[in-house]
């Protein structure tokens, strides 16, 4: 299975959790890791190049922090430029149909904050509905996001546990035909 893995963080140098996960990702010819902010520092996303990558891939991963209950600005820009009607959705827009779609999300707040009684008032599942709908409209297979709560100060065990979870998911997929 070909995996397209986007890392989307505007300031990777200052995100310990995201950087440490990135270092753990396996080197594999069927896994393409792309740092979106490095690729398009001025937001001029090249739709043609991205679509080529998508066509190659069987699974799409997006690793990013949760900003304002959503994706970082450049990933939103990527959605807008790349997921066009006739390509990703709408009549004959079947380029992404059947592909796996999964987010790897880091948050500042802890898991308790993402509950109806927590200070974010909604569960993560509810908050991420727009992303789920995005994947749904593209006829992708939505997989529950892997969420790293309280990532900002994560060290040692906690960090390793989450990173292993991601790496295992990827290696399992790479081994399936």
């Amino acid at each position: 299975m070909n995996i397209l893995y986007y890392v989307v963080h505007p300031d990777l140098d200052h995100s310990n959790a995201n950087r440490s996960l990135l270092r753990k990702l396996p080197l594999h010819p069927q896994l393409k890791v792309i740092d979106l902010y490095d690729r398009y520092p001025s937001f001029s996303v090249n739709a043609v190049a991205e679509k080529e990558l998508i066509d190659w891939a069987d699974a799409l991963f997006f690793q990013h922090p949760l900003y304002w209950y959503s994706v970082p600005a450049l990933l939103k820009q990527w959605f807008e430029i790349v997921l066009t009607p006739g390509y990703a959705y709408g009549k004959e827009g079947t380029a992404l149909a059947g592909k796996r779609w999964q987010h790897i999300i880091s948050t500042g707040g802890n898991a308790n904050a993402y509950r109806s009684e927590g200070y974010n008032q909604y569960s993560m599942e509810e908050l991420l509905r727009p992303l789920e709908s995005t994947a749904g409209l593209c006829r992708c297979e939505w997989h529950e996001p892997l969420i790293h709560f309280s990532a900002k100060h994560a060290r040692g065990e906690q960090l390793n546990a989450f990173n292993d979870q991601v790496v295992n998911t990827l290696t399992d997929l790479l081994e399936t035909r």
Binding site: P10, L12, D13
Partner: peptide, 9 residues
């Protein structure tokens, strides 16, 4: 000098 491309931009 080590700044990320986006930040340099």
């Amino acid at each position: 000098l080590g700044m990320s491309k986006h930040n340099a931009w």
